[in-house]
């Protein structure tokens, strides 16, 4: 492959690594046989093929976007939405408490399903199938520690200022962004471990777990919508007031939280569908 013309190497390099491991050599040879450097249309066609291989699920050899990777990122988005909902609802505990409880149960079931799906990989990791993967396990702890330090700094910056003060808002934004970074780093580490640690999967485990994940996230989203409507019915002043995130209006915070949950549910649905297709 290193003897191939630069253009051929670039075009092959556009494909996902997993695809290249299976088809890289034969595809390089085909591009050489076709004299691709003389045909811009073939270059474009190759680029389209690479984009398709990255974006469209096409089985194990055609895509690096494994169902578990998508599920982990869905869980990350869901976690962010859940934290937002918790923050949003903590000052409205007397309204629609039953819905909040149901929502918490649905969310717990969804996330527990993802944990169950990851158990075979965790067992393989503990059994030492891939020692280097332990480095990734440290990522969430380091990220959380860094975020806690950031929170302390933010508290110091906001200390003595009102809730609408610029310092307070900047500190809150820094804490939120830091939290997002910690969640993203954790999701990245988790998906990397799930991808690289070889683990035998019991038949149907992941398919069932990811289906439960998608249903749980969908139910959580519906309950979050219901909760907001009940707030509107029982406490109109809170609904129209500035009891949203970081003392902003309630409605955009509520809708934003619901949108994040819905996005996570859609991603989980995609993961579930891909897993089912893989096991068929």
């Amino acid at each position: 492959m290193s003897q191939d013309p630069r253009l051929v190497r670039v075009l092959v390099g556009c494909y996902p690594a997993r695809w290249r491991r299976v088809h890289g050599d034969e595809y390089s040879q085909l591009l050489c046989d076709l004299q691709v450097h003389r045909h811009p249309a073939l270059v474009l066609d190759s680029l389209r093929g690479a984009a398709r291989a990255r974006l469209v699920p096409g089985g194990l050899t055609m895509s690096t976007r494994s169902p578990m990777t998508v599920a982990v990122w869905a869980a990350a988005l869901f976690t962010v939405a859940g934290l937002g909902f918790q923050k949003l609802s903590e000052e409205l505990l007397t309204v629609a408490n039953g819905i909040r409880t149901l929502l918490a149960i649905a969310a717990a079931v969804a996330l527990l399903a993802l944990v169950v799906a990851a158990v075979p990989t965790a067992v393989a990791l503990v059994r030492g199938r891939d020692h280097r993967a332990w480095w990734y396990v440290a990522v969430p702890f380091v990220a959380c520690a860094a975020w806690l330090v950031l929170v302390q700094v933010a508290l110091a910056v906001a200390d003595g200022h009102g809730v609408h003060a610029t310092q307070t808002r900047l500190a809150a934004a820094a804490v939120a962004l830091g939290g997002l970074g910690a969640v993203a780093a954790t999701a990245w580490a988790a998906s990397t471990v799930l991808r690289r640690v070889p683990a035998e999967q019991p038949p149907g485990l992941r398919r069932t777990a990811l289906a439960v994940l998608a249903v749980g996230m969908g139910a959580t989203t519906v309950l979050a919508v219901l909760w907001g409507l009940l707030v509107h019915a029982h406490d109109p002043s809170a609904f129209t007031g500035d009891q949203g995130l970081v003392a902003t209006p309630f409605v955009p915070s509520w809708l934003g939280t619901v949108a994040l949950m819905a996005g996570a549910a859609v991603l989980a649905g995609v993961a579930s569908r891909r897993q089912s297709a893989t096991e068929r």
């Binding site: 085909l30 066609d45 680029l47 093929g49 690479a50 089985g59 050899t61």
Partner: peptide, 14 residues
């Protein structure tokens, strides 16, 4: 085209 060909080969193989 090469991209079209290999996308189809992958699909047919799957």
């Amino acid at each position: 085209g090469p991209g079209t060909l290999y996308a189809a080969l992958g699909r047919l193989e799957a």
